[in-house]
Design a binder for these strands. Sequence first.
DNA 1: AGCGAGCCGTAC
DNA 2: GACGTACGGCTCGCTG
Length: 677
Amino acid sequence: MLKYLIYDTETTGLNIVTDKPFLFQYGLVDEDLNLLDVKVFKAKDKKNKQKFIDYIKKVDTIVGHNIKFDIHMAINSGIDISFFKDKNYIDTAVLARLVISHDQQRDSSFSIALKKLAVRYLGKDTAQEEHLLKAELSQLTLEHKANMKQYFIDKGVWDLSLSGRAETKVINEVYNNWNKVFHKYIHLKQARLDFLKLNPAPNYSDCSNVWTYAETDIYLTHGLFKLWYHDVVKLQQVPTLIRISKATIPYVLMERKGMSVNLNKLIQDRNMIIKEMSKTKIIDPRNGFEYSIGQHAKLKELYEYETGMLLKSADKQTRKEIESKSPSARKANYIAKMEKYLSSYITRILNKLSIIDNEYKVFTQYNFAGTVTGRLSSDFQQFPKEPLELANGYVVNIRDWFVVPKGNKYMFYFDYSQMELRLQCEWTNIVSGSPDLNMARAFSPYKCHCYDSNGNKVPYQGEPNKYFKTRDWYLDEDPAIKWQPTDLHALTTKNAFPGVSEMDPDWGHYRQLGKRANFACNYGAAAPKIADALNVDFPTAQALVDGYKKAFKGVVDFSKWLYKHTRTTPSTPNLLLRRYYSRNKHLLQNWLVQGSGADILLEKTTEVYEYIKDKPWWNLMISVHDELGLTCDGIPKAQLDKEVKAIQNIMVYQLSAVDVTVDVEATETSWANKVDY
DNA sequence: AGCGAGCCGTAC
DNA sequence: GACGTACGGCTCGCTG
């Protein structure tokens, strides 16, 4: 009897809102996980599409490899999203993350891609099939490119004096990388648009063997499902599979909301950067060659020539150190950042840009199976926070480009305050029965007391919503001392440099070292790396590590506990019971913290979704590891305050010693202008 | 032209 | 044994 529906689509592209499926494939699976039937049909085949929808209605569990993408495609094909709500989702990519040993997952050859998993775990190599499909598309694309060039020639806009490599370079840039180079080829702009309108770029729907290919994917997905589904129970990963299943539709909706772009501002900034970049060139004085910023090997050699030093890298830290001796390094420092903005951010946003209802939007996907810890991965997580200042004083801030969507009034950002530090504190409590005192007291008056209005002594028992901030607290072990949040960085600093006090004129410098050492040590760094990263000698690095260990004895105990634990136990669960099958103590110490944070955010996102689902004036918009962004329409202030507070309260995660609390920021204009709410 | 390794720079 | 998790762009060398 039918119990599970596996489905997949073949599509015209990867944009989750503007691309459409041209093929649907599905497999019917019974309660014993046997494949009953496989079907492939064209998206425009209405009769078969209705049959497919009927199957969706019948089952309560849908299976797929990166199933979120295929839900988007079904919606884009006109299937109502309501058919997908209240279903269970089993993503075979997620299954892979849950059941395969986490040490294996870290292997550099490990890949979550369907075909790669099939080779490795099903012994089915479909590389030839994939190769044929790609080869066919490549051939079509080559023809399309040649046709574009011919069109330019026919229209009289092509520079006929070009030949050989120069000619190839132009057509390649125009065809493959238009959004990066269009300022160089303004004379081709209109002809290119006209050509693309008459001759859309080929896609997989134009390839002949795509039907076989499509069918194969169902067999492979079924193979992985059958291989791994029962392991989820055996390996105690059920809570995590359920958590991800429940988050599926909230994330589909978040992804479809997208982000709105102020294109005028982006183009204005782009123009300023290009103008500035054209002023500076790196020329090798020995041969007159111009180097691009990506030619690290050649640049390193040039820096060595100019400084007379042996360098280990051509990266920005190295360049900074030799700036005074090497004119080229100085130029590179300036160009590198502009190049990064142009290549990695501006061009990428332009490539992703869609026009939806007269609004410029970009969409991203969140990969539920992208990481070994359970964090989500996405291509929108690494946009720089710090603005870029050009030599003429012009400031480029990427966050200026992302604005409140049309029809909405606000963007809200709910972010967890020092989440991973608080989670690490929780782990010290779990393994020792009491939290690291210094860490706990950085966040709350742990083991402190206050007095009520009658003068009665009241112990601190954990008070949500920062209630404790309205009172004075005194340390239990010494009531004469008033509690103040521990300055964790100062603590490490003073331990590492006993002679240095806050009165010291260089205190700021030393505290900076203590702060950076704290971060590094939390990630598991030891003295050699600290010496390297902080650019201090080995004894100083060792002193900082010792200072950290003295400051946070609970963390040292956590480390020792984990060492013993991994010697005796094959797996360890994080706070939300996602299990990591590894005996690597060093990695686990980080995974338990990072992965707990990830699962908390995932679960809380679903809870926030449940809260806003009958309040259409709220929409999920973005999620980045420890923060959740939402848009909201213009609703009455009192109601807004109440609902913001409610979301904040939903998100707070209660731990035993300290809670993971939530800060709220908002803007009515752009991301760059958000302020505390 | 396609692919993968290696380097680099960004986020949390 | 020795700083965690990611993503994307670029260059370069290899392959066909």
